[in-house]
């Protein structure tokens, strides 16, 4: 194990932390979703990067190539991307509705209004 051999992991981890931090720390509902997106996207690298083989090519069988990168992570991540955009779409739809119902998209504000409703 060397720094170079694990650099991709650690860059990925920084991306994850940044995304997670935005989700938890920020009060704006849209920004939270953006953070969530970063958090989810960074996971792609965790799967795909280790599947790469130096000197390999994309896993499309063709004459003249012997080494291919691992196709399975690609498949998994395709699914993950789709799940991510589906979540984003739903989240944004909710934000639009929240904005109409509360007239704000700041979490603190919404919590305050909920308290006033006396839930």
């Amino acid at each position: 194990m060397s720094f170079a051999s694990h650099y991709s992991y650690w860059a990925t981890i920084v991306l994850m932390i940044a995304g997670l931090y935005v989700v938890i720390a920020r009060g704006n509902l849209v920004k939270k979703l953006i953070g969530l997106g970063i958090f989810q996207t960074s996971v792609y690298l965790l799967y795909v990067a280790p599947g790469k083989l130096i000197g390999g090519t994309a896993p499309i069988i063709a004459e003249g190539y012997r080494t291919y990168s691992n196709p399975l992570p690609h498949v998994l991540i395709l699914t993950a991307i789709v799940v991510g955009v589906a979540t984003l779409a739903l989240g944004l739809a909710l934000v639009v509705r929240i904005r109409e119902a509360y007239d704000t998209i700041e979490e603190d504000e919404i919590l305050r209004l909920d308290d006033e409703d006396g839930s």
């Binding site: 509902l29 969530l36 989240g91 909710l94 934000v95 929240i98 119902a101 509360y102 909920d114």
Partner: peptide, 12 residues
């Protein structure tokens, strides 16, 4: 309307 906020929170 709290349902929306609850759903959003649950989503996150």
């Amino acid at each position: 309307r709290q349902a929306l906020a609850a759903a959003y929170r649950y989503l996150i």
